[in-house]
Design a binder for these strands. Structure first.
Lengths: 194, 194
DNA sequence: GTATAATCTTAACAATGTTAAGATTGGAGG
DNA sequence: CCTCCAATCTTAACATTGTTAAGATTATAC
């Protein structure tokens, strides 16, 4: 009765988004299921209708962000005319930075929390790695295929490209650094001059 | 009265060592002050006579291992005749691996727990880095000084050397890989052939 | 030998993850 | 429209945890 519904309607996503906010404000250390429940105006045990455990919610939070990020990057790549042209890397790099300019809280959530496991290894099992990094890597490998470069140089170039783009995202999402319409051209310039 | 002493005698170190054992067996997630206290045959609040908090004990556990490791490495370096000879790096590498062959549980404690913060960056703040890594780095810089190599090549060589040595330690401390008297010569060969 | 500081114990508190049992509700099938 | 069922949510409770307070015990300095 009234405006208080027994059924929340979209509790699963609300818990995920409130969880990200909570971690950004208090850190993963002070994150708790009960606090997230309270933020969603819901009882302490409500999350257990959607998640098996606290760890399960945390994993879902990571997947939630990563999936949006991946969808954005894949859309960006496929919208480019020539998939083998180096320009596709610049296009992807722009999207990489832009995604976090549009969602700065996602950047802090993913990369500023020591226990949010984001694997970034070249040699290790690719399947366990941060998916956006692997997407950048396979895209770059396709672009560089025709160039007959040594494996080492290619891998180093990929790391350099990723570092540039990730660094830009890190700077752009810092507090007091505001979005500027010149950012897009800024990003293009920096990546091209690599 | 009897053999049960009111004063433990060496509780601080016992807590640290029992804590390392507990983390190796159950993981940092299931580590708790009360369990460590029980393992030491002491009441739940006893740790607070030696540590301010759980975090404080965890930090002390890391420092405890790192200090022993550093002392070992420094002794190894200083025992070598010529501090500028490349051989000092081999000597140090041998000690690096040997330390963890002699203390395999320290390796797992330091490197297999996601929340044990071990920084290993080249560009970042050196003071925040894993001290043994910085020691290897400064030693290598001294050895390579006369060679007039580019900074990039030197840094890459340092990474390669560290990776070799650390990888050997990782393999050597795996279960079912037992210490063998040939390990020392094995290590020498692998590092020299780099 | 006594005062004092260090060390340890017991007891309690609030916060947390998790489960059990039951209430409420939306929607499918009659 | 009505009924039944599964999904969703609530309340209540439990064990575990970090931490503090108050006091007991012991080592050590004087």
């Amino acid at each position: 009765m009234g405006n208080k519904l027994y059924h929340h309607g979209d509790l699963r996503n609300s818990l995920i988004e409130a969880g990200i906010e909570l971690i950004n404000q208090e850190g993963v250390k002070r994150f708790s299921l009960r606090k997230v429940s309270a933020l969603c105006g819901v009882s302490q045990a409500a999350p257990y209708s959607h998640f098996q455990s606290k760890e399960d919610l945390l994993k879902a939070m990571q997947d939630y962000v990563t999936e949006q990020f991946m969808a954005d990057l894949e859309r960006s790549i496929q919208s480019y005319t020539n998939q083998n042209d180096p320009g596709v890397l610049v296009q992807m790099g722009k999207s990489y930075v832009m995604f976090f300019i549009n969602h700065p809280h996602y950047f802090h959530f993913l990369f500023s929390q020591p226990c949010m496991t984001v694997n970034l290894s070249i040699e290790g099992d690719a399947a366990e790695n941060f998916q956006p990094f692997e997407l950048l890597r396979t895209t770059a490998l396709r672009v560089f295929e025709k160039d007959k470069l040594s494996k080492e140089i290619i891998e180093d170039t990929i790391i350099a490209l990723w570092a540039t783009v990730h660094g830009l995202a890190s700077i752009a999402t810092m507090k007091n650094v505001h979005y500027d319409k010149d950012w897009e051209t800024k990003i293009e310039d920096i990546i091209w001059n690599k």
